[in-house]
């Protein structure tokens, strides 16, 4: 895999670790982390901060029977949770969002195809398939939009994005991403709930920690 150049911001990694990132973004952050050792290491550092805070938390007494109850349940059968592994160009968290199925492409014309994986009050997650030389369709985003490349690449005014690269675009970014020659570009795009985060989100890009 070629070098990943465009990464998740520290603020987003911290928010992901803490669980406060909107679901569509959590899908893309966990997919990028699956592909990027640098961001995995950074995420694990944030988790270490959380761990220290947990370790130092003031203990609160438990109900009397809780410990005995848990110890008695150690041998219980338990349902195994599905583990989604990478399949082809789709990392585990994307397979999880697909619920293990193959993409169901719908044509948008000019050879461009999409599969909407989720779309609700929290925002949307969609897969896009863009033939070489075609423009990535405009989703009319008002807030923040993340795009993670899974195969091929696209370029716009801000640079070139290949497999594993994450583009973070806010509403102020005027750009026209076009799939590069060669392999078709497959990417996954996430938007958040527009109204709720509209004004606040671009500022999320600011680093959470001042360095």
């Amino acid at each position: 895999m070629s070098e990943i150049r465009h990464h998740v911001t520290d603020a987003m990694l911290a928010a992901y670790a803490a669980g406060s990132l909107p679901h569509p973004f959590a899908v893309l952050v966990s997919a990028h982390v699956s592909m990027c050792p640098d961001c995995r290491a950074a995420l694990e550092a944030h988790q270490a901060v959380g761990g220290v805070l947990l370790d130092q938390a003031a203990p609160v007494a438990l109900s009397g029977g809780l410990k005995a109850d848990i110890l008695s349940r150690l041998d219980d059968e338990f349902p195994s949770e599905p583990v989604y592994a990478r399949s082809g160009v789709y990392p585990g968290p994307i397979m999880q969002t697909l619920k293990g199925r193959a993409p169901r492409w719908k044509s948008l014309g000019m050879g461009v195809r999409q599969d909407i994986l989720s779309e609700n009050a929290e925002g949307s997650v969609r897969l896009l398939y863009i033939p070489p030389g075609q423009a990535v369709p405009d989703h009319g985003h008002n807030g923040l939009e993340l795009t993670l490349v899974l195969q091929g690449s696209f370029s716009d005014e801000t640079g070139r994005f290949g497999p594993g690269d994450l583009e973070i675009a806010d509403e102020e970014l005027e750009h026209t991403p076009v799939a590069d020659p060669g392999e078709a570009c497959i990417c996954v795009a996430a938007t958040d709930a527009r109204l709720r985060f509209r004004s606040a989100l671009p500022r999320l890009l600011q680093p959470f920690f001042r360095i």
Binding site: Q47, A48, G50, G51, V52, L54, D55
Partner: peptide
């Protein structure tokens, strides 16, 4: 991961 980080997550 430390045990505490793992349990935190």
């Amino acid at each position: 991961a430390q045990v505490s980080s793992w349990i935190y997550q």
